[in-house]
């Protein structure tokens, strides 16, 4: 079940036989980016961030990698805003996508 990849990088499914029998993603989730419908993106403000990792803990995806400071993985972040709401130090800004 190797997916056919078009020149633009998207998966080509033109025939029924191109689809797997099991309803699973074509190829690895490492290559299937799932953040295309995000409308806001979290931006971590380094000066305010205390490295408490609460954002990493509450992210349901999980799309925040622990670090100094933590990093938002924008390939998988859906823009749900939980990290923004939960940060006790107001260290994560909400920025509109597609500006």
């Amino acid at each position: 079940m190797k997916p056919k990849i078009r020149k633009d990088g998207t998966v080509a499914v033109e025939k029924t036989g191109d689809l797997p029998d099991m309803p699973v993603s074509m190829g690895s989730m490492k290559s299937n980016k799932t953040a295309s419908w995000r409308s806001i993106r979290p931006v971590i403000i380094e000066e305010r961030c205390k490295r408490c990792m609460i954002c990493w803990k509450v992210c349901p995806e999980p799309a925040i990698r622990p670090g100094d400071p933590p990093v938002v993985d924008l390939d998988y972040c859906k823009g749900c805003g939980i990290c923004i709401a939960e940060c006790p130090f107001d260290a994560i800004d909400s920025e509109k996508e597609g500006k």
Partner: peptide
Amino acid sequence: VKLDVADPRSFGALTSPDYYYEFSYK
């Protein structure tokens, strides 16, 4: 195909009308 951390896949995810029909056919 199986759940495998070395080859992560999504199982039973949202399937649009473009593909659901073919899964039923299969």
